[in-house]
Design a protein around this nucleic acid. Sequence first.
DNA 1: ATTATATGAAACCAAAAGGTTTCATGTCAA
DNA 2: TTGACATGAAACCTTTTGGTTTCATATAAT
Lengths: 126, 126
Amino acid sequence: MADPSRKTDVFQAIADPTRRQLLSMLGEREMPVTVISGHFPMSRTAVSKHLRILADAGLVKERKVGRETRYRLEPEPLLELKRWLAYYERYWDNKLLALQRFVEGDETDGAIALVASNEDGACTAE
Amino acid sequence: MADPSRKTDVFQAIADPTRRQLLSMLGEREMPVTVISGHFPMSRTAVSKHLRILADAGLVKERKVGRETRYRLEPEPLLELKRWLAYYERYWDNKLLALQRFVEGDETDGAIALVASNEDGACTAE
DNA sequence: ATTATATGAAACCAAAAGGTTTCATGTCAA
DNA sequence: TTGACATGAAACCTTTTGGTTTCATATAAT
């Protein structure tokens, strides 16, 4: 994980469609749980658990206001995703890919990585 | 899903760290299952199942060569992820965020979405 | 022809995920 | 103070996930 203070992996957190919906909903304004859960076909408690997972990943911030807890998007952890994705941008340029294959020639063995990557498959700046 | 021919959601596919590692490994060159699985602390069959999930998401392509099946990265579905992420770029600009909050003023109710989004929380071009 | 290699399918299993209902607690309103 | 509202924690259940081992099949090599 990029930030060990995050209990939940960002990739894991955004894997669930309900949680992605939550993120888009909480981007514009902070909202209390009851209002949020009104938009979902599941119990308030279920939504609350999804919010906890998002909070554990640092994707959402809670703020107590009176008897309600308001949640708001915290986009910073998405930068990890952006960095991960940036690594693959190089494959979207077909010319670069063709060049790489040409340079490789017929070799089929010896897995020499052209770009360093950690055990998580992420490309980090360290 | 962006492409209904994909059996597995891209977000789901990349949620697992093993599968992310597989993608980074298969980017440089195509490899047969036995070689691939040599890099993982699990059975060949387990790796094979991960590869199937990646293939179902369109993230990997298989090619039969003699008695072996070689896999290679297919980066195209990552564009869906890129589009999803692009939506949140707007939140990374703090000035824009500050302006938005200023415009909103003290309003706390009435969930008016400033930007359209589908049920999946994605921002699509339609 | 026989044997070894490469692979996926099947059956199985434990743990995690996603949901429910119920309960306890804290805060606001009358 | 009493009652309603907002919320999270707990216990529980079902399905999915990630792994295993075993078996069947296709290709290659001797």
